[in-house]
Design a protein around this nucleic acid. Structure first.
Lengths: 241, 241
DNA sequence: GTCTATATGTTGATAGAC
DNA sequence: GTCTATCAACATATAGAC
């Protein structure tokens, strides 16, 4: 059998009427396909076809596939980062009881991802897929650009969380935030069934689900940062062998 | 510039002295490369080269790349699943105070992944990388085979967890377990720094880290299953827009 | 069983006309 | 700026000798 025509999925999003000039359409098309298939499986041909232009036009504008990825992700992450900072400012300014601030900080971290609408509405939600793919796609390029794009956010949230929990060990805060990120990423990796506009028109179910994510993360963070290290209940101490 | 010779990483694991007959060496080589690069970026050429044989030998034994993946994953997951069931049996049989059983069940779910040693020791820990890749690699084939391989485990843990929490809503249990899986997957996705044999010869740091993972997950599960749904502290209710 | 040689299609990138 | 045509390297898979 010859190589499969479409390696991941049978080209699910084909005839998008993407708008803007060639450069903008290319960025949009790349994001959509990358979110769905990952870097490797997203060919320049597929991108340029979706954008209604040619491969050489893409190379004229971006030079290489890697630079196309970089510019696309920079553009996309700006909105997300901006709202995260906005919420974090609010969380730091407000008064809270008990563990309220910790929960507010995690909300500031998690909520924005679920609030931002995709510009292109035909797809389910490229923004979420994109974030998932970004943390999950193997190629080194992706890792590099992701760090580049989120470095500022990460360090500010770490700092804020450390300040919110009295006497917190920085190392544990880092771990806790990282695991929260894991919860968030996993929740958008296509394994949870998010109600869509038709079955949940007011978005109440989606809000509830996001609320549970935050609750899970907040409880986990507190357990890691404030809790004692407990001996395993099972296993003859084989962990870490 | 022509396409890069090595798309993900500069062939980090090259001269493995893999053992066994051709079939076994092929399975082992495939697992190592797949864990590192994902399905797409793992070419039959690279696999057969590492196994010290030819492409056609691989096709003789497995028929296709997909079947190679399937057999490799089946073989690898057997040990993991067996130990998970073993621990779960133990968690269900023992007596616990308070939320002990919930934590024990999560231990049964999480611990085995960190206990199993790779047969090939040169790599850091292919077993963990493998699990991460398995939940994260885009291609549909991977998703299909993963479900095939973990279906039994998932349903039994869901059931067990539901029984352990009085009056638990099955839907919430499912969500909680899924998020725990997210924590686990993320923790092995190469974003956490696991101390290795040299800096942590007795494995005490690694055990502590695994303990924290379990603590995070257990607290999160209880918060999701037992906690009330709380209104967001930030945002004008934009979530789920 | 395992090899070499080959078939056939894909990829990223470029040259040159317009 | 955008196109068509083409390149060299890669992919999976197969044919046939040994």
């Amino acid at each position: 059998m010859p190589p499969l025509a479409s390696p991941t999925s049978p080209t699910p999003a084909q005839a998008h009427p993407l708008q803007g000039d060639t450069k903008a359409r290319l960025l949009e098309a790349f994001v959509l396909l990358f979110a769905e298939r990952g870097f490797h499986a997203t060919s320049m041909r597929a991108v340029t076809q979706m954008a209604g232009t040619s491969v050489s036009a893409a190379h004229y504008h971006f030079g290489s596939k890697e630079d196309l990825l970089r510019q696309a992700l920079r553009r996309r992450s700006e909105l997300l980062n901006a709202r995260r900072f906005e919420y974090l400012d609010r969380a730091e300014a407000a008064e809270f009881e008990g563990n309220g601030r910790v929960r507010a900080i995690l909300e500031a971290f998690i909520l924005p991802l679920f609030e931002l609408r995709p510009e292109v509405s035909q797809q389910q939600n490229p923004q979420r897929n994109l974030a998932a793919r970004l943390y999950v796609d193997p190629p080194e390029v992706v890792k590099k650009i992701r760090q580049e794009v989120f470095a500022a956010v990460t360090s500010r949230f770490r700092e804020s969380l450390a300040n919110a929990i009295e006497g917190a060990d920085p190392e544990r805060v880092e771990l806790a935030l990282e695991l929260s990120l894991g919860v968030m990423v996993h929740s958008i990796s296509g394994r949870l069934s998010w109600p869509d506009q038709t079955t949940d028109p007011e978005g109440s179910k989606r809000k509830e689900l996001v609320g549970r994510l935050v609750a899970f993360a907040a409880a986990g963070v507190l357990a890691v940062v404030e809790g004692e290290v407990e001996a395993p209940l099972l296993s003859a101490g084989r962990a870490g062998e």
